[in-house]
Write a protein that binds this DNA or RNA. Sequence first.
DNA 1: TAGGCCATCTGGTCCT
DNA 2: AGGACCAGATGGCCTA
Length: 194
Amino acid sequence: MDSVFSDTDTSCDLFPHTDDEDSVRGSSMRGASPPPDQPQQQKKRRRGRGRSDVSAQVVKKSRRLKANDRERNRMHNLNDALDALRGVLPAFPDETKLTKIETLRFAHNYIWALSETIRIADLQAGRGGEPPPLRPAPSPASDGSAGRCWSSGGSSSSSSPAYCASSPGSPAAPDDLLPRDALFGFRSFAMGIY
DNA sequence: TAGGCCATCTGGTCCT
DNA sequence: AGGACCAGATGGCCTA
């Protein structure tokens, strides 16, 4: 049973990457490591059946090249998905592109912030009272790599960030909902700067 | 120049 | 068996 995000081929559906062009057949190789010329192995083998060894090597090499091509394409799909994710995150027009890790962390925090906004709005609509306290942010530390800034400040759970003043809206267009300062504050917050 | 980020290659492992 | 996924290695580019 694959989840909605089950990989394997869904990414290809969402972000069809024309691998034919941009994975320049075989040797685009920017930082490609030089072919691991296995010298000692070359010298060692070659007893007896030379011919079948050669053909086996040819087969092996062509399999490797195909695998390289697939891997390249897979990474391109991954990057396309990352670009799509960047596209729905709030960003200033003149801002430099988020790195991969920044994009993931930002998205993680952004989702949390939006869900908090919705939760608070629902609660307020329900009883018309004071805004409930924010729940603690999900600790990215649990995912292993992120989050050195999250718990350090401790400001996130007590003081209501600026974005909470806005009404919940489409995640696709938070720029429209937030004043620039609030957006910056929110973004800094969501990026883990606070 | 060091450090960060990235693209690519590669071999291993898991899955279908 | 072949493909997808993953992590390590390598080298290029860019910026402080």
